[in-house]
């Protein structure tokens, strides 16, 4: 048992240290003999035991005596802990690859591969919304019983559905947006976009978008791409809206009238109310085939969610 523990421990340490690499090699020899049903007579186990006991003995004879007496049990405990932690690490790596966080989907606890929690950062929704707040409590974010019929959509015949709930003013939505666009282009999946005004005054953009979709549906996605990729301060400045609209050749007056109409305001408000029913707590929230990904995940996470077997 100590040989297996030593092989893994020295194997890892051997990545950085030549002397530990030699010990790992010895441990491998011992383990190899054991797994081929031969006795490990290399003396390695005793060597390691001797090294451990001598280190302890110079500090405390009592401790050394205890370790010697319970060496086998301690070895088993270490082995079980090691197997447990190896599984835990494996799970973390899997989670990070598939969900962008070591701790699981939308879990924001510490992850060594994403120490600053970038993959889970969102703009929280609500009255005190602000950017960069990570998840505070796991909620049941779902599309169940949500009516998405009024939102812009493409590739509607696809078996896969991607729903992007984002805010034009949210940095994290802006970060995730190009990846979702790329995903939809590559996978030809059904794509529904929903603007949720999580931060600042972006309602006017939502209303403008609503009207562009209504009046110029063929130009909506180009317009939407622009709002997410152009300079944020410029886009969010109300006085620039007319200029933006005219850039796309839209009838500015027509869009303005539409956006200011009571019908549009009610429709956009209704859409926001509908989105709230998803229990979303921040933007961006991306639903891929019903599963919610909160925060800007790496592209592979979105791709894995659509792939049949994670990698392909």
């Amino acid at each position: 048992m100590p040989c297996i523990v030593a092989l893994i421990v020295f194997g890892i340490m051997g990545i950085f240290s030549a002397s530990h690499r030699a010990l790992a090699e010895e441990a491998f020899g011992c383990v190899f003999k054991r797994i081929t049903f031969r006795p490990c007579n290399t003396g390695f186990a005793e060597k390691i035991k001797g090294k451990i006991l001598s280190k302890l003995l110079v500090r405390s004879a009592f401790l050394a005596k205890m370790v010697n007496r319970h060496y086998e049990i301690l070895s088993w405990i270490f082995f079980i802990l090691m197997v447990g932690s190896t599984i835990w690490v494996g799970r973390g790596v899997y989670n990070f690859y598939v969900y962008g966080s070591c701790n699981g989907l939308n879990e924001s606890g510490f992850c060594a591969f994403d120490p600053s929690g970038e993959n889970n950062k969102v703009t929280s929704v609500g009255d005190d919304s602000s950017c960069g707040i990570t998840q505070q409590s796991e909620q049941n974010v779902t599309l169940e019983n949500i009516n998405l019929s009024g939102f812009p959509a493409i590739n509607t015949g696809s078996k896969d559905t991607v729903v992007f709930v984002g805010c034009y003013a949210c940095d994290y939505s802006r970060r995730a947006y190009p990846d979702i666009k790329k995903l939809v282009e590559n996978k030809k999946s059904n794509y529904i976009f929903a603007h949720y005004p999580a931060k600042g005054d972006t309602m006017f953009l939502g209303e403008a978008g609503y009207c562009v979709q209504k009046e110029y549906p063929e130009k909506f996605w180009e317009f939407n791409d622009y709002l997410f990729t152009a300079d944020k301060d410029y886009v969010l400045n109300k006085s620039n809206l007319d200029e933006i609209l005219s850039k796309f050749g839209f009838d500015v007056k027509k869009i303005s009238d539409c956006a200011n109409s009571a019908e549009t305001k009610t429709a956009v408000q209704d859409q926001t109310t509908e989105l709230k029913k998803t229990n979303l707590y921040g933007t961006p929230t991306i639903f891929i085939n019903g599963k919610a990904f909160v925060g800007p995940k790496p592209y592979r996470v979105y791709r894995s969610a659509i792939n049949k077997f994670i990698f392909f």
Binding site: G43, E46, K47, K49, G50, K51, L53, S54, K55, L57, V58
Partner: peptide, 19 residues
């Protein structure tokens, strides 16, 4: 197994014997 005596003597006080 006397190997551990040799290892421990070496580790503790640089005493080099054969096992």
């Amino acid at each position: 197994d006397m190997h551990k005596f040799a290892v421990m003597l070496d580790e503790m006080a640089g005493i080099e014997i054969r096992s």
